[in-house]
């Protein structure tokens, strides 16, 4: 079994023969054209490539945001293909953490409530939710901003709240798409520091989609996508 073997080999993510296209029939637009790669557990992978190369689609498929039509993805021992909607939701809440370029915080909730919501979705009891939310917000240096709503926070602070939310349920795989795309250089550095520190502390695998060389430079591995395929010369190359 691919998942078990891969886990035994220390692989967190296995992708085999992955293809994806948008639309159907004559109007189908191929986005991913057959991907095969593994990501080691605990590694920090930068996913790079020009716009339209399929980076976000790959991230969506890894995160279980959309169904896999062709090929296989194994996250640890979990085979994503064939999971039903409810199972995918469970998978997202317990295995995956997302960090969005535009933060993706619910602006009607405070920073603490945003974190607690993710924990609630993961089925964590209330008292534990409150304690863990405070701890993780402390980890990202936002204890004094916990009661603020997103619109009362700077971009960097919002992204740190998003990181706190993503890591609050202790995911195995953290997926981030242009996490510093909307931040100035100083804020970006700080966010990346927090992201890297928490990744190491939590021992999770991090996949970051980025155009930013500074962000890519922090990765342990790089995957380069071009027209839906991995650019061979860069596959698995250590940073």
């Amino acid at each position: 079994m691919l998942g078990s073997d891969a886990v035994a080999r220390g692989v967190a993510v296995s992708v085999r023969g992955l293809q994806h296209e948008y639309g159907r029939g004559r109007h189908a637009v191929p986005v991913l054209r057959g991907l095969d790669f593994d990501i080691e557990a605990g590694s920090h992978v930068a996913l790079q490539g020009p716009s339209g190369a399929g980076k976000s689609t790959l991230l969506s498929l890894l995160g279980g945001l959309e169904p896999i039509r062709e090929g296989e993805i194994w996250i640890g021992e979990t085979r994503l293909r064939g999971l039903r909607r409810g199972e995918l939701a469970e998978y997202r809440s317990r295995v995956i953490g997302f960090v969005f370029q535009h933060f993706g915080l619910l602006d009607v909730l405070t920073a603490r409530e945003n974190v607690m919501l993710a924990l609630s979705l993961a089925g964590i009891p209330l008292q534990q939710r409150m304690r863990r939310a405070d701890e993780i917000l402390d980890d990202v240096g936002l204890t004094d901003r916990a009661g603020h709503r997103p619109q009362q926070l700077s971009g960097g602070e919002q992204q740190r709240v998003a990181i706190a939310r993503a890591l609050s349920s202790r995911p195995h795989l953290l997926l981030a798409d242009e996490p510093t795309g909307n931040l100035d250089e100083e804020s970006a550095e700080r966010v990346l520091d927090v992201l890297e520190r928490l990744r190491v502390d939590n021992g999770c695998t991090l996949v970051v989609v980025t155009h930013n060389p500074m962000v890519a430079a922090r990765a342990t591995h790089r995957l380069h996508l071009r027209e839906g395929r991995l650019a061979p010369e860069l596959v698995g190359e250590p940073a």
Binding site: G63, L65, R85, G86, A89, E90, R92, S93, R94, F98, F100, G104, L106, L117, A118, L121, A122, R165, A166, S169
Partner: peptide
């Protein structure tokens, strides 16, 4: 739509 997507991305079920 985006909020709903985000909510689902962090683990919300359809019923939520």
């Amino acid at each position: 739509r985006r909020e709903i997507g985000v909510l689902k991305a962090i683990g919300a079920h359809d019923r939520d």
